[in-house]
Design a binder for these strands. Structure first.
Lengths: 219, 219
DNA sequence: GCTATCTTGTGAAACGATTCACAAGGCATC
DNA sequence: GATGCCTTGTGAATCGTTTCACAAGATAGC
């Protein structure tokens, strides 16, 4: 299979969200053009994106909302549930742990870790359920035993790379990083980073160079 | 001036962070190759990125860490301070309000808003200082009066677009969006979105298509 | 001051993603 | 079942970004 661009995958996510919303509104059929408008792209782009994975529409008519929703869920690997551990029980980590959107979309938080003895043993609420914060010291053992699919990293920047190395060695294959550092991982490990500092600096740059057009775009 | 690609701006941020770290370690001179290694890119890329803005190095030698740091700060608009309002005092919003990294990098949170009467009037800690949550009902008036530079949006998805429209009408020119929706803004308004669902789905896709190489990349 | 060595800055080439444009297929109407 | 209208799926063209490759400038050693 041909390598799929990251930008394509992001758009597929966007299409899926819009499809789900359309289904709620009772729409049963949708054209690439409608899908494009909402995703801030073009109809040709939508069709090209989908064409990497097959042929999902009916010429002259468009796409059946239900069918395309299912297909996209399949493509994105959302037909199954993924288990997620949160590493770092600080402000951001605990806020994420309580984020309902995770569970709703099939990402189940199964454990929360911190290295601070003050926090270890404390109870945090994780999308309704109560979880006890575990000690990062035992994280390798836990990862080997529980085989979580994804680690969400919300630790201070200086601890991040070391932890990533440990997690990867213990078998983690996907990481969502919130630490404001550039992480290195072997290339069979999937990594996405959310870097608030970088986003703010992007806005700062845009504001400082207002005259030079080309803002307003998102990604 | 030529349009600068978003990817370029992101890398400039990364270079800046590494330069600051290098300065702390006492390094005074650095080559494009060293800068590249850490940022996960190539030396040619580093030089090309910088070349859009001028000529900062010495042939045969490299870049003076201090000078390049200052230049990048200038380019990114970080020489000045930016005022930031946080719209939505939920879990994520309050967690962000307390994030020290904002202040440290020149982004000063000046107000926090919510529409929930229960939350309005409550006191939240914002990087040390105490702030009273204000009512979103008055946000237009406040924005017109205080002219904040950037709005960080941490409201439920269904409220996001409406709020963006109000903020833009009131004069906001830069938005960092955490709501899991695709926002539309006029193209003189800078917008960046952080969409956790999208990032997780990207990881889900990568895990589901493991065999098809090309993971490990960031961004 | 000459030579060897190093690293920048930058056109040109290569690559990758997006957009164009249109043939092919499907539905509705008559 | 023929005609007109609509929208998909996709090769080809375009556009933008990254990588290559090398001349130019700077330093150090002799």
């Amino acid at each position: 299979m041909k390598r799929i661009a990251d930008s394509t995958v992001r758009r597929l996510s966007a299409y899926l969200r819009f499809l789900e919303e359309s289904a709620r509104r009772g729409v049963t059929t949708i054209s690439s053009d409608e899908l494009a408008k909402r995703g801030g792209t073009t109809s040709a782009q939508v069709r090209k994106d989908l064409s990497f994975f097959g042929s999902f529409g009916k010429r002259g008519l468009g796409y059946a909302v239900d069918e395309l929703t299912d297909s996209l869920r399949d493509i994105l690997g959302l037909a199954r549930q993924w288990s997620v551990i949160i590493v770092g029980a600080g402000k951001i980590g605990t806020a994420l742990a309580q984020y309902e959107g995770f569970k709703r979309r099939g990402f189940l938080v199964t454990a929360v870790y911190d290295r601070d003895p003050q926090k270890v043993g404390q109870v945090v609420s994780v999308t309704g359920e109560q979880h006890t914060v575990r000690d990062i010291a035992h994280i390798e053992r836990d990862v080997q035993r529980d085989k979580p699919d994804i680690a969400v990293l919300t630790v201070p920047g200086e601890d991040a790379q070391g932890l990533v190395d440990r997690l990867v060695r213990a078998g983690i294959r996907a990481i969502l990083n919130f630490a404001p550092v550039q992480l290195r991982v072997p290339n069979d490990v999937a990594l996405r980073s959310v870097n608030m500092a970088m986003e703010l600096e992007g806005l700062s740059f845009a504001l400082s160079n207002r005259s030079a057009s080309g803002l307003g775009g998102d990604r």
